[in-house]
Amino acid sequence: MSEHRPHRITFANEKGGTGKSTTAVHVAVALAYQGARVAALDLDHRQRTMDRYFENRSETEQRRDIALPGAICEVVPGGDIDSFEATAERFGEGADFLIIDTPGRDDPLARHAATTADTLVTPMNDSFVDFDLIGQVDAESFRVRKLSFYAELIWEARKARAIDRRQEIDWVVVRNRIGHVEARNQQRIERALGELSKRAGFRTVKGLSERVIYRELFPSGLTLLDKGHLGELGTSHLVARQEMRTLLAGLHLKIPQENRAELEPA
């Protein structure tokens, strides 16, 4: 086994439609823009959204004869944990970060990827439907009643890592699509997340708002960070780019100094 192990960032949520793959791609590209060497594994061999995004990005590079920072990506077709780890070791060779995008469903490899992450990112829409993945609230008071099975799984994994004297999993819940949530409901979710974070041991950061631009960029594989390749951007797109920078800062990821480059200002 190689002495150098890339920092694993796993994007995991057993619910679909939370912007998981979009967030994963943007984080991967943002890290690459800062000089990091990034590899990516897509565990959703059915939809393979992240892999398709990077395929589209590569085709745009060839079509426009340009070079874009990004990540090498491979789809993991399934299999057991040992074969997955062999793939992760081989594919992460020489990388600073290994991005793992998991399917939006309960899956044995997805659980393994989540519980062996260095940074676990759980994107969620700001609704109690999505909140139910990590905890249950009282129907009248909206106070947290108990952790969900998923939150207990991560909690136990964090404890096991601490016992092994390894670095703990940094669990980050990313709140996507906040802008379209009714104010009172948003405050209730914020209070519930604050209460649950103390019990489950995660941090919360603001993620990506609901914007059409994210869906429009998919066919080209471009991201909001690809300044100079997107044409004229409106004010909302510039705000979205700043959202991405804020999210990346909130993940507290360390770029090796010898590779580090600063993201261009918005």
Rank of each mutant, 00 (worst) to 15 (best):
D130G: 10
L233P: 01
K254N: 05
V181P: 04
R48H: 12
E93G: 13
V205M: 12
Y214N: 08
L238F: 09
E216C: 09
V174H: 08
L31P: 01
T122V: 06
A12R: 00
A67I: 01
E85S: 08
C73V: 08
L98N: 04
A192D: 05
I134N: 07
R166K: 15
D107E: 11
K159N: 05
N176P: 13
D106R: 15
H112S: 04
R145S: 04
P123D: 02
G16T: 03
R48A: 15
A117D: 02
A71F: 07
L147M: 14
T223F: 07
L43N: 03
E232S: 15
A71G: 07
S197Q: 08
A24V: 12
M244R: 03
G17E: 09
W171P: 01
A200R: 03
Q186F: 14
R260D: 00
T246M: 11
R191I: 00
T60Q: 14
F97R: 06
R57D: 01
A32Q: 01
T115H: 07
L193P: 01
T23N: 04
V38H: 06
S21E: 02
R211D: 00
R175Q: 10
R5W: 06
E14L: 15
L133T: 03
R161T: 04
F131I: 05
R5L: 10
G221L: 02
I81T: 09
T119L: 10
E140W: 14
F54H: 08
R57W: 13
